[in-house]
Structures are given as C-alpha cells and as structure tokens.
Simulated assay, not measured.
Amino acid sequence: MPKAKETVLEIDLKSLEHNYRFLRSKLKAETKFLSVVKAFAYGSDSEIVALKLQELGTDYFAVAYAKEGVTLRKAGITKPILVLHPQAVNFEALIEHCLEPSIYSFGILDQFLATVQEKELDHYPIHIKFNSGLNRLGFGEKDLQKLVSRVQDNKSISVVSVFSHLAATEDKNEEEFTRNQITLFEQLSSVFCASLNIQPIRHILNTSGILNYGDAQYDMVRSGIGLYGYGNDPKIDVQLKPIATLKTIISQLHQIDPSESVGYNRAYFSKTNRTTATLPIGHADGIGRQYGKEKTHVLVKDKLAPIIGNVCMDMIMIDVTDIDCKEGDEVIIFGPQLSAHQVAKTADTISYELITGISQRVKRVYIP
C-alpha cells in the first residue's frame, strides 16, 4: 500500500477474511454465523465489509437501526438482516427492504403487529429478544406467558429466532453470572418454543462468548468486534488482525523555544528546545481531547511520539524532537502496529469507542 498523502482509514479485507475464518474455526460445522455490521461496520465501511462477509459465506447480518439495513440492501446485500433496536417510526422502511426486527417489548410488538396487519402480510420474520441479565432490552421471565399468548396463532408474523445478550463474557471473574444468564436463556427460550411448538434459531454468544463459552453455541453465534480484529483478551488479540489502520501525515514542523506554549489554552509548555509536528486530524475526526496532553502516542518512523497540548477540532500536535522526520511523512494513529486497544486505554476507554468514532469525513481506502 502506498504511503498516505492525507488522513485516511485503510481497511484490509484480507485481515477481515482472516478474522472471519478464525472465528468460524471455533464453531461446529452446523452453527450459523451472524456478522454484526452496525455503526458503519464498527467505524470502517458497512457496505464494503458486508459485501466481503457475504462473499465469505456469513449466514446473517445484524445492524442497530433500520436505516443501516436499508443501506446494506441498496449495496447488494441479500442475506437476512436482523435489526437489533428497531423504532416504530421506521417499520415501513424496514418492511419495504425485507429487514427483520428484534421484538423486545410489548409496545414494539403491538406496533409491529398493527403495521403488518394493515399491510395484510403473512408470516413476516421477527426475532424475540429475552433479557437474561444485561437489563437493556428484552422480555423477562414475568412476560413469558403473556408473550406466548400474543404470538400464538398469529399468522401475520413468524418467529425465526429467539436470542439474548450476555453482559460479561470477556471477564473470567464473572463466569458464574454468565453461566446463570445462559441457564436463564435456556429456560425462557425452551418454554417459549415448546409453548408455540416452534424450532427457531437460538443464539446468545457474542465474540468473547464464542471464545470462552463454546458449549453455548446453540444454532447461531454473533460476532462484531472480533471481525474487526479485537478479542478482549491479549491471547486472542494476537491471533486476530485489526482490519483498520488510521493514518495521517505531518503538515508542518515547528521549532519551539524553551517556555513557549503550543495550542489552545496554552496547554503545553516546552522546558527545552523541541520540535513539534502538526497533523491534519482532530476531535472532529474522532480523536477526542482526552487523547491530548501527552497521554497518548502515535507512530512516526516506527517511533512513538506523544500528542501534546489540547487536541484541536481539525489538528493535533505531537513532539518529534528525537525523530528524524519531515513534512509529508506518514503517521500511524492506530492499526496493527499500534492497536486501537492500546491507544484507547491511554484515554481510559475501549477500542469499540475509538474505532466506531472515526468520522465519516475521513477518507476510506481499501486493501482487497
């Protein structure tokens, strides 16, 4: 890949394929694979990533909202798409583009039933979400009998899956809690399916669940962060490949005298003669102010350079005093050489937040 000439997010599709095949290798042959491509495929490019995953053979996709699913359909995605957090206002578009809603409350169920009945649809696919302990979305144990009665013999809809979401699969200290979640899901889904005499797809495992609780694969698993190169475990991270590399360049070098300040609010003062570099990337691109004031480093010529002062909207300044570099040289913000996990940790956050926050104004380039 040629050196960057501007701020770009490189997306390596070979690394995506590697991660997909690695995660698939942890599954039984008959277990289906759902690829989570919400939030622009975790900050990369949902259309390009989804098309590659469809080519590789993923069985299902998941997005957060209907608008994301519509984008995928227009891009040529034909596999089923689960909408994890549908809103009633989007039901018309959801149905128009053959998207499949997660039904997580009686309010959403009633509104969706009204929509499909008004359109005189038969057996429209839905997914039932159970709350097993994350306490975010989903039906609870007390809702079970009422839910069965509402769904039973309703020909407008067809339950194609029942699922739940685990809260702490990456945390070995929470194994008992996770096992209790799995047990509760087993109980709720079994009673629900037996009461309706149906055999839908059942799924509960996320990326860390695939790696740590493989005995609970059921019929399908879901992976998001793992596809993009992060496994929430150092032992797993070395077997995955980050698909995205955020690169920029040095726009200008400055020689800073002792006691001079750099940037807004004079947040950095030099104690000695320093050389600084200004980069064309800032908090409008997803690198927030929390990364400034020498908390976080970037890579210049394979050497670490601290971000100094306050991050600006469109620029950051770094200290390159001990690095032999020039204007136009490439700078790595994160990627395989400097993982998003490492960078995010310096700002007391997680890789998910960093990679999904990269602005859409950053140009995407692709390595096929």
Rank of each mutant, 00 (worst) to 15 (best):
F185E: 00
L188S: 00
C193L: 06
C193A: 11
L196M: 04
N197W: 03
P200Y: 02
P200T: 07
H203S: 10
N206H: 11
N206T: 10
T207R: 01
T207K: 04
T207Q: 04
G209Q: 02
L211W: 01
L211F: 08
L211R: 00
Y213A: 05
A216N: 03
A216V: 07
D219I: 08
M220D: 01
V221N: 02
R222G: 01
G224P: 02
G224W: 01
G226E: 10
G226V: 11
G229P: 10
Y230A: 08
N232V: 06
K235P: 04
V238L: 07
V238N: 08
L240G: 08
P242Q: 13
I243C: 08
T245W: 05
T245S: 15
K247A: 02
I249F: 04
I250M: 09
I250Q: 03
Q255T: 12
I256W: 06
I256Y: 05
E260T: 09
E260C: 11
E260R: 12
S261L: 08
S261N: 12
G263C: 12
Y264A: 15
R266Q: 15
A267C: 09
A267L: 13
A267E: 12
Y268E: 08
F269R: 15
F269Y: 15
F269N: 14
S270T: 12
K271N: 14
K271E: 14
T272R: 12
N273P: 04
R274K: 15
T275M: 11
A277W: 05
T278L: 12
T278A: 10
L279S: 06
L279D: 01
P280E: 11
I281G: 05
H283V: 08
D285T: 00
G288V: 01
G288S: 10
Q290P: 04
Q290A: 13
G292N: 05
K295H: 07
V298R: 03
